[in-house]
Structures are given as C-alpha cells and as structure tokens.
C-alpha cells in the first residue's frame, strides 16, 4: 500500500511539472515573455527588472529552472490590470467559485447517485427512461445553453431570480442549478451502468440463488462493488469543478476563478492565466490522487498487486 501511494504521489508531482513545462514552452513560443506579461506601457526599468528576476537574459535551461522555482513558490508575476500579485488575485476569487461549485457537487452526488441506483434496480421503468433521457440531455446540451434557458424561464419569464450578479443567496441558485443538473444526469448514467454491470455478475445471481433477500444482495454485494467505478466519476467531477465553472460563472457574472480566467485570457493577462492554470492543475491532481487512494481502499485487488511483492 505504501509503495502504491508513493508511486501515485510521484505521478501527481510529474503531472504538475508537466503543466509547468507546458506553460513555459507555450509562453516561449509566443514571443518575449517580458513584453507579453508586462503591460505595453510599462517603464523600461520595470521590464529590465522583470527580466533580471526571471532570468530572461540567461540560457534557456536556467530560465526554465528559474521559472520552476518561481512557480513553486507561487510567484507568477503581477497582474497587468492592477499590478497586484497574480496569486493574490486568484486566491481571493477561490471562495466565490467554491460557493457555487460545492453545492453543485452535492447536487450531482445527492441527486445523481440515488437516481442511478433507482434506475438500475427498476430497469426499463418510466423512471429509468427519464433518467436516461435526462442524461443524454446532460451530455449534449452545453452549459451556456442550459444556463440561458434557466435565465429565460426563472429570471425573464417568471422574474423569481436575478439573471446575474452576486447579491446574496438568490443569485447563486441559477449557477448552482446549471452546474448541478447537467452533472447529476451524467452521474446518474454512470451509477446506473455501474450498478447494472455489477447486478449482471455471477456472484449476485449466486447470492440470490442462495436465498439471501434481494435487499441484502443489493446493500451487501451490489452497492459496495458498484461504488468502485462510481468513485472514479465522482473524482473526475471534483477535478473538473473549477473548469466547469468557467462558462457558468461568465454567464451569470459570478466573481469566481472561471470568470477571472476568461477576462484574463481576453486581456492576455498572462501572469493570471498561468496562475489559474497551476491552481486548476494542482486541484485536478489532488482529486485524482484522492480517487487513486480511495480505489486502493475500496478495491483490495489494487492494493493486492501493489503489496504482492
């Protein structure tokens, strides 16, 4: 188990390094980083100081090391827009993003998993068909369309909720609904197929043939086994929380990381873009790591192969 955890940790570290390298390479491809990151009207001394600090006069290998060093300490330079450190700008947006993504995650899990289990246990029922139809919609409808439809109904037609902004609880409802319902449908679909797969296994039939009650078969055999693939998709959703918020935050003018990213990309505020890239990468990597470890905990086989030697 220990070497399993260590090898996953190494992989996680490697992914982060990959993202940093990716940003470094793409940034170098695009021209002189000093001119790109500093604003056009920055004084020449400031540009020279930036070059000195980031080692831009050094050979490329030293630049790379300096870049990694800066990135590891959270120093991505200053935002072009107001001159504040990019990391501070990004960090102050984190709570707003979590304020809509965490309730949305709860909605996905709390609605999606029970719906999926119910659909699997009542296969081909009306509820099952509805779940599947909803999940197709969840896959094929882009979040901005769903968001605008919700706005059209709840803000424009009914006038119950604000169409955008961040004034209290009521303005969070539509973003959370947008993020949550699409995800819940996808979640339900995966839970359903995981359950159906498990229910088709011989050991389930063996257990029911032995005379164990169906309720016990489901709770003792089917659910724990179906949990394993379900954890993967939950982890994937946790990992892509922030990424998924990019569009939705922009539609609802919600002041989170996603909207910051969009405006930073539009204004080519590269320090901020890099910083957000790293924050999202770190978040993804941690989510994947958690999934891997949960896997090891849930599935003795994964642990087993690692511990066999």
């Amino acid at each position: 188990m220990l070497s399993f955890a260590i090898s996953r940790l190494l992989r996680a570290g490697l992914t982060i390094l990959f993202v940093m390298t990716f940003a470094f390479v793409v940034l170098r491809l695009s021209g002189d980083p000093a001119l790109l990151i500093m604003s056009v009207d920055a004084p020449p001394e400031a540009i020279a100081a930036f070059r000195e600090s980031w080692g831009l006069n050094q050979p490329i290998w030293d630049q790379y090391l300096a870049y990694i060093g800066h990135a590891l300490t959270g120093d991505f330079g200053k935002s072009m827009r107001d001159g504040r450190p990019a990391i501070a700008l990004v960090m102050e947006r984190v709570p707003a993003t979590l304020a809509i993504t965490l309730p949305a995650l709860a909605l996905k899990i709390g609605l999606g998993i029970p719906a999926g289990i119910y659909a699997a246990l009542h296969r081909n029922s009306m509820a099952d068909r509805l779940t599947m139809a909803a999940s197709v919609a969840g896959f094929t409808m882009p979040s901005f369309v769903l968001a605008l439809l919700l706005v059209l109904v709840f803000a424009v037609q009914l006038g119950w909720l604000p169409a955008s902004g961040s004034n209290g609880l009521s303005s969070a409802i539509l973003p959370v609904l947008t993020l949550g319902t699409g995800g819940a449908a996808i979640m339900a679909r995966f839970t359903r197929s995981a359950m159906l797969e498990v229910l088709g296994q011989p050991y389930i039939r063996a257990a029911s043939a032995k005379g164990v009650t169906w309720r016990t078969v489901v709770t003792h055999h089917a659910l724990p086994n179906a949990a394993i693939p379900t954890v993967t998709i939950v982890g994937f959703m946790v990992g892509s929380l922030v990424a998924g918020a990019v569009v939705v935050e922009s539609v609802f003018s919600w002041p989170g990381i996603g909207r910051l990213l969009v405006s930073a990309v539009a204004n080519r505020d590269l320090a901020v873009v890099q910083c957000i890239l790293m924050v999202i990468a770190a978040w993804m990597v941690m989510a994947n790591l958690a999934v891997d470890l949960a896997y090891g905990w849930l599935d003795p086989r994964v642990r087993g192969t690692a511990a066999a030697h």
Partner: peptide
C-alpha cells in the same frame, strides 16, 4: 518486474 510499481525488484 516481479510485481507492479516503480520499486518492484
């Protein structure tokens, strides 16, 4: 490799 992982002998 007798087993999985980076450190398998």
């Amino acid at each position: 490799r007798s087993g999985e992982g980076f450190f398998a002998p």
